[in-house]
Each structure stands twice: as structure tokens, then as C-alpha cells.
Design a protein around this nucleic acid. Structure first.
Lengths: 126, 126
DNA sequence: CCTTACCTTTACGTTAACGTAAACTATTGA
DNA sequence: TCAATAGTTTACGTTAACGTAAAGGTAAGG
């Protein structure tokens, strides 16, 4: 089986069909049609997965579209390729910043949790 | 020196004063006042830093407020503490998901970059 | 004294990312 | 045959996170 309906994808990724159509409106998806009905390929499904991953990382849909377009080898122009590499490096530096942020936040959370547990010990049985 | 004006902080963190006041409106900051003018302590500055870190990670301001409040030991109630620990663990699992997402995205970007470079080699001098 | 540079509050405007509802079509099983 | 189910388009509504403008207070410097 190599195709999906919109509601199948919606169920699988836990979003609404409205959301999926919205992504299409913005040009992030372009499923085939059988008559009027959308038919999604595995590639479409992958794109959706990438979009949602980007969302979890706080990317805008525009950002996601840019990134996803990076994966497609359709760009023949040399300048375009160079611009792409620049964009990739920029995204990479953002991601590294995020990694740093996350590790700091995790440390903070650990500390906060330890404090809570400590407070429970001294406060739990007065 | 242990205090800052709103525009000092705005400059330092590259946001507008409107943004900082907005965070105050939502209850994320509560600077002292000298007369009518806001006076920010180092602790306020730290809170702002945390808020912006949260933003980079795609957290909502409400989420950030919750997290920041975790760091404060003002909660004496046992139930509150247990709820806090739950919240902390939930945040931690979200962050771990993000770590996973990021590592996958970084892999993808590396691949995309390699493809670009490859394309440049074969296309750069035809 | 007057301009310049900050500060303030109030309030309407804007953008992104959908939600929600209306109105319609097509397929399918009782 | 008819009602339920799943699909469609169109279009107005909503929320978060500020932007932007108006209208004004205050302190320093020329």
C-alpha cells in the first residue's frame, strides 16, 4: 500500500484534516488528486512528518518549507546551491543554540526537582 | 551595579521594550518601581533570559512562566510540590523529544549539504 | 526655556496557525 | 432509497505575541 487519505494521515500524526489542508494552502504539501479527493504518497507523508518535527522545534511553517525544500535536488543553478549551503549552515547554528538551551534547561529542571524532593522530605512529616 | 533600565535590557537581549512590558503584563516579570519607572534587578534579568531561552525552544509564554515558577521555592504545599515534580518530568520528556528531533534534523541537514556540494562539483565546471 | 532622550499608559492593529461552521458532493451499506 | 460517512471549498473567527501610534510625564544639557 503506497497511499493515504487525509484522515488517515490526520489520525496517524494526531492533527486535524484542517491542519493538513492548511499546510497545502501554504505550499508545504501538494498531494495528488483522484477526482477531487486528495491522495497522499509516502513522500507526502514524509513531508508531513518533517513539518511536524519542525513545529516541535519551534520553526515557523515558512522555515519548515525552506528546510524541506533543501532536501530536494531540483536546484540546478550554482548560486542557488550556494545559497542553500548558507541556509543549511544557518539552520545548523540555530539547532546548536537549541541544543545548548536544552541542556541548560534540563540542568535547571534537575535542580528544581531536587529542590522539590528536598522540600517534600523536610515538609512531608513535620 | 545591580539594576537595569528597561531599554538596557532590551538592548542587551535584542528585544523591544514593548516586548518586555508585554511579559510583565502576562505576569512573567514584576520589576520594582522607582516612582513610575521600572527598575530591573539581576534576578529580573535572569528571568528575562529564561523567558527568551524558552522562546527559542518554541515554548509559549505560559509554559515559560510555569517553568520559571518551578525554580522558586515558595511552594510549601505538599500537593503543589508533587504537581511540580510531575510538570518537571513532563517538560523533561518534551525536551528529550526535542533532542531527538534536533539530532535527526542535523543528520538531514548534513546529508542535504553533502548533496549540494556534490551537485556543485558535477555542475560547477561542465 | 526648550529640545532631546527616556520613561509611562492606553488602545487599536497585525500575523501565524489554525478552529469552526456552512453548504455541497460522492460512496456505501441497511 | 436513504441515511451515514468521508471527502470538498469558502469564509469568517480566534489566540498568541507582540507592533505601532497616541498622548503624556520627567530629567539633563545647551
Amino acid at each position: 500500500m503506497a497511499e493515504y487519505s487525509i484522515s488517515q494521515l490526520a489520525k496517524e500524526f494526531d492533527v486535524t484534516t484542517r491542519t493538513i489542508r492548511h499546510y497545502e494552502d501554504l505550499g508545504l504539501l501538494a498531494p495528488a488528486r483522484r477526482g477531487q479527493t486528495r491522495v497522499y504518497s509516502p513522500a507526502d507523508r514524509t513531508r508531513l512528518r518533517l513539518i511536524l518535527r519542525g513545529k516541535r522545534l519551534g520553526l515557523s511553517l515558512d522555515d519548515s518549507r525552506e528546510i524541506i525544500d533543501m532536501y530536494e535536488p531540483g536546484k540546478t543553478n550554482v548560486d542557488q546551491l550556494k545559497k542553500l549551503i548558507d541556509a543549511i549552515q544557518l539552520q545548523r547554528s540555530k539547532l546548536n543554540q537549541q541544543l545548548d538551551d536544552i541542556s541548560k534547561l534540563l540542568k535547571d529542571l534537575n535542580q528544581a526537582e531536587a529542590d522539590c524532593i528536598e522540600a517534600l522530605k523536610s515538609n512531608g512529616n513535620p
